[in-house]
Amino acid sequence: MSEMLDYRYVAAKANLSPVKKALLICSGKGGVGKSVLAASLALAFRERGRRVGLLDLDIHGPSAPLVLRAEKAELLGGRRGLHPVEASGVKLFSLYYYVGDRPVPLRGALKESLLLDILAGVYWGELDYLVIDEPPGTGDELLVTLRVLGSKASAVVVTTPSRLSLSVVKRLVGLLRREGVEIVGLVENMSYLEVGGGRVAIFGESRVDDLGIDLLGRIPIDPRLERALASGRGVKAAEKYWDAVVKVAERIEKKLSR
C-alpha cells in the first residue's frame, strides 16, 4: 500500500489540476542550452498573453532565477504549500531560492522523494502552461514527473546539431515514445552562427531530420546572449536568440491547438 498511500501523489494531482498543459523541456545531454531555452519559452508564452509557470527541476544546478532576473525573492508558504515566486510575469519555482550556491548531495531514492515534495508541495493555481526544465537524460526527474503528470505532459526535445547530442537524444525519444508522451517537436539549439551575412554551422550540418520528429525551430548562437544574461538585461536583449525563441513558442502553440 506504500505508493497508493503516499499522500504526495494525491496532493500533486490536486495541485496540478488547474494546470492545462505541462511542457517538459528535455534533452539527452547537458550543455545544449535547455535551461535558458525553458526560461525563455516561459517568457515568450507570457508575452503571448498566457498564464505561465516555470518549474526548474534541475536539482543539482538550478538556474532559472538567473535567466529570469529574479535572484532575490521572498519565499512564501500557506495551506496549499509553497507559493511560486513571480518573475517577469511568470510563476517560478526553483530550488535556487532554497539552497543558493550550496550543494544538494542526494542519491536516487532521495532525489525522487524531493521531486515528489516539490510536485506535491507547490501550489500553482490556474495556468495555461507549466514549463518544466527537466535535467538532461532519462533519470528520476523525468520518470517521476511523467508518473505524476500522465497525459497532461507533452515534451519538447532540445538538441544541438552535434553528433554526440543527437545520439543521446534518440534514447530520450525512445523512452518518451514508450511512455506514450506526446512529443510536440524538436528544437535545434546552437544551430549556426551568423557571420558576415552567411551562416556557419559550428557543430556541423543539421541531422535532426533523422529523428522523425517535427522541427519546431533552429536557434542560432547569439554572441550577445551571454552578455545579456550577465549584465542583467535578460534574454530579450539578445535579439537573434529571442526572435528564434518567439517563433518556437508560436509553433508549439500551433501544434498543441490542433
Binding site: E74, L75, L76, G77, G78, R79, G81, L82, H83, Y97, Y98, V99, G100, R102, P103, V104, P105, L106, L110, K111, S113, L114, D117, I118, G121
Partner: peptide, 24 residues
C-alpha cells in the same frame, strides 16, 4: 533562508522539503 507562512511565523525549508537536510 526562511519561508514566511501567510498565516503567521516562518519555517526552515526542511519543513516543506525534508530532503534538503542534506544541503544544510
Amino acid at each position: 533562508v526562511r519561508v514566511r507562512d501567510l498565516e503567521g511565523g516562518s519555517d526552515l525549508p526542511v519543513h516543506y522539503m525534508p530532503e534538503l537536510i542534506y544541503t544544510y
